[in-house]
């Protein structure tokens, strides 16, 4: 592939899924009309959802899901050793995601609740970056196929991808939505990284922070605003911990 005289390499790509709903992997295979072009740009050597081939020798690994078992840890380390570029893909891989809700309960209780007598291997919910370094974090629950395609273009061009640094409010206002906070709906838009085109506030759901924090997010200000709006500490804590997107900061309320 040549772009205005610049030779673009055709990287070999693999997709791996760990603990998650596979929704992000499904997104990767979505938008079928563009798949032909996509396969011109990259060579897919290992992607269970579209082919039984397991060719290996990949340059870029897209890793979906959070990491919960010892065997996952070993598998991820092997992927890291092979991949020149590792892309944590989706909220579970980037943040821990919805799986992290399980951390609210003692592990045996949670396992027993779901699997009863059946024995399964499970452990602490970890982000990809908790186990191995991730070169790029492609955010979202699920990821956006358009953003993935954009990312592929950046990678093929050899350009460091720049995700929006600013919060969701920008895109929300650009869609001329009425602010859901004015309608009494809790929203994390002001502290969450944009790029989702404000799909949740657009549908009056408020933002849940699935894309992780925007750069230099002003937690102090938002917490004060949420309190002024009458949202309880528990409500706020529940929301900010949902995707585990804001862990590590000392400002937002935490669950009791």
């Amino acid at each position: 592939m040549k772009y205005l005289g610049i030779e673009l390499p055709k990287p070999k790509v693999a997709v791996f899924g760990f603990t998650g709903c596979e929704g992000c992997q499904l997104q990767l295979a979505n938008n079928e009309q563009n798949l032909k072009d996509l396969f011109e740009l990259v060579e897919v050597v290992d992607f269970r959802l579209i082919s039984s081939d397991k060719l290996g020798g990949y340059d870029i690994a897209f890793v979906e899901g959070s990491i919960t078992t010892d065997s996952d840890v070993e598998a991820l380390k092997a992927i890291r050793a092979q991949a020149k570029l590792l892309v944590a893909t989706g909220a579970c891989a980037c943040l821990g995601g919805v799986n992290n809700l399980r951390e609210r309960f003692p592990l045996p209780d949670a396992v027993a609740e779901v699997y009863g007598e059946h024995k399964i291997e499970s452990g602490q919910v970890r982000r990809v970056a908790d186990v191995v370094p991730a070169d790029i974090e492609l955010p979202g629950c699920p990821i956006s196929k358009l953003e993935f395609e954009w990312l592929v273009r950046q990678l093929v061009m050899g350009v460091e991808p720049q995700f929006p640094r600013y919060p969701v409010c920008v895109e929300c206002k650009q869609r001329i939505n009425t602010c859901v906070m004015d309608m009494g709906i809790l929203c994390l838009g002001p502290i969450t990284r944009a790029g989702c085109n404000a799909v949740c506030p657009r549908n009056r759901a408020g933002c849940w922070g699935c894309r992780g924090p925007s750069e230099e997010a002003n937690y102090e200000s938002l917490v004060e605003i949420l309190r002024e709006h009458g949202f309880s500490e528990a409500h706020i804590a529940e929301r900010v911990s949902f995707f585990n997107a804001f862990s590590g900061n000392q400002v937002l309320p935490v669950l009791e």
Binding site: Y166, C169, V170, K173, A217, N218, S221, L222, E224
Partner: peptide
Amino acid sequence: GDKCMSCGSCAMV
């Protein structure tokens, strides 16, 4: 500025 969340809402509307 301490209150500002740098969200750009002001400029958008």
